[in-house]
Design a protein around this nucleic acid. Structure first.
Lengths: 335, 335
DNA sequence: CCGGCTCCTGAGAGCGCTCTCACACTGAGA
DNA sequence: TCTCAGTGTGAGAGCGCTCTCAGGAGCCGG
């Protein structure tokens, strides 16, 4: 009665196929079963439109087949138009789909959402967690590590919790950008650095410094927060500090775009007077005026790798603690 | 033994608090219980670090507290930098967080992922579904409606399945843009329309036409796919078709940016020779040269409303089938 | 022809929770 | 003193699945 109204269960399939519940379960899970009962069960499943109940399965297997992707809900990076968020999501989702896992998106803005995430993870609502683009010494990695759930970060987490992570070669990319400027004969190379509480900000500045270190050039630094506006402000300040600069390396394309605007406003020609190099190779980089020379980072691949690693962890397989993906200098007209 | 090793359960809390499982359940769910047992249970919960098992709860309540957001995984709209994706996600997630629901993100690219989504929904893996930015007559809405799960769409779904949706006033916004151009004395107003298999593309073109209808002006139309490149190509074609045009309304900011590039390449000054109006008011619109006059649509609010509606549906409350959010003309320098 | 082996199958015991139901207890009213 | 609400509580029956375990069927060699 009430049963008939609901969705078909293992039992109803078993009854229809004339076998036991256990046999149906075996068929559904691909275990050994004779061909005849296999066929009977499959037919019953089709006829009834049976779909296994996920909660019931989770209850006994302790697997949820859910992977959480935690993103800090800050305007600057995730929701700016540098495409980081969609790119990572895309890569992650691609790999999870192949593994038949679902993606739970958690935006970690307030302290309340932090607590909510912790609770959700503690309740074993998900099998693993992907932590992206953390700021400063976020307490979340440590909290999750304590709960004892597989966690993979995007970029080396600041703070003392050692967690596996997937990052890009920020240092090498920044250094390559600066070397390109040096090779082109630029002598006064400034940088617009990113926030110094994020790895991408820190390492790209370090790369700039290391490349300059060999040469006799001194470093000229302004700090932005990866946004276009901050890049514009930083460029103005740089121009103030050193009107004679002839190149600038911005730690993000958005900041590079800001620099381009500030330079134009100041009457400097790019690349003639000042060469500009960005970082990210966002969709917009091809369309700036002039088109932006920049360091490409494989955003989608970051997502893919993170997902692969966490799946391995969930499966109990060993992984290497650190994955660093290559960056690549893309030459266009701005430098 | 094996029990002691695992996470605390309702039973262990009950044992520690000296009450029955049912009483603990009542405390956890906020039902009537005497103060003394209330206190005892709370203490036991704290001491044990008890967190309810989500799967077990779902199994009996039939609620998963999960809402799916389905996005078509196409490069043009979702993963272009028009911020639609992050904006909607942000709005949705904000409302879901308040309701203590989790967001499951499903990217619907291939036919395989369509099937996977259907399966997942059929398994009652989620309580409700949000369908965003569909193309053409996607079979998904109909399929989900058949399964009988709460569904809310972004924009009126094409095809015959009537589903509740949250849209923006594309028609009014486009008309307002064109009227602004008309009021400014422009006489030959072209449009770069969006894809004609999406509501946003269709309605914005209709708005353009209706505004022009009253005047004696004729319509000049080129079609793009919301991307910058397509906008550039469309603008070139428009200039070819009618070199004397003095205004263009683009159905997206990205296409407007493309138009700006094409116009500059053709030696036209904006807004002096040709006025340009976009649609979306993306982050980049403030930074184009000249800054883009555009029609703002409340992307985040779309997400919020969609989430609110689906939650109401899940709760069994009635909702209105159609929600249309206002658009607003934002005047900057391009028109 | 029988013991022993392999292989498939069904019975049944949970997984951790909610929720109905009956019961105990209190206090008001008759 | 007895009845009748009204309230809080515990026992127990599931929710739909997996997985262990024991039994039965089929086959081999001795």
């Amino acid at each position: 009665m009430s049963r008939a109204a609901g969705r078909p269960t293992l039992d109803s399939v078993a009854a229809r196929a004339g076998v036991s519940r256990a046999t149906v379960s075996r068929v559904v899970n691909g275990l050994a079963v004779t061909e005849s009962s296999q066929a009977a069960v499959r037919r019953a499943i089709d006829e009834l439109g049976y779909v296994p109940n996920h909660a019931a399965r989770t209850l006994v297997t302790q697997r949820t087949d859910l992977i959480a992707l935690v993103l800090p809900e800050t305007t600057d990076r995730v929701f700016s138009d540098d495409q980081f968020f969609p790119g990572v999501v895309n890569g992650v989702s691609q790999v999870l789909e192949q593994a038949d896992k679902q993606l739970v998106l958690m935006l970690a803005g307030s302290a309340a959402s932090h607590a909510r995430i912790e609770r959700s993870v503690a309740a074993r609502h998900v099998d693993g967690v992907l932590l992206a683009s953390l700021h400063g010494a976020d307490p979340l990695p440590a909290a999750l590590a304590r709960i004892g759930i597989p966690v993979v970060c995007n970029e080396r987490p600041l703070g003392s919790t050692p967690l596996p992570y997937v990052g890009v070669d920020n240092l090498g990319g920044a250094a390559a950008a600066v070397r390109h400027l040096l090779d082109a004969g630029r002598t006064r190379i400034a940088t617009i650095a990113g926030p110094q509480d994020m790895i991408a900000g820190i390492d790209r500045l370090a790369g700039y410094r290391s490349a300059l270190h060999g040469s006799s050039r001194r470093s000229i630094v302004a700090v932005g927060d990866f946004t276009l506006d901050s890049g514009m402000a930083a460029m103005r300040q740089l121009l103030d500090d050193d009107p004679g600069l002839d190149a600038v390396f911005a730690a993000s394309d958005l900041m590079a775009q800001g620099a381009l605007k500030a330079l134009r406003a100041a009457g400097r020609r790019v690349p003639d007077d000042v060469a500009v190099v960005g970082f990210d190779d966002t969709a917009g980089a091809r369309h700036t005026d002039p088109p932006l020379t920049t360091v490409r980072q494989p955003i989608r691949e970051i997502g893919r790798q993170m997902a692969r690693q966490v799946l391995r962890l969930v499966a109990g397989d060993p992984i290497e603690a650190t994955t660093t993906l290559p960056t690549e200098l893309v030459l266009r007209q701005s430098a």
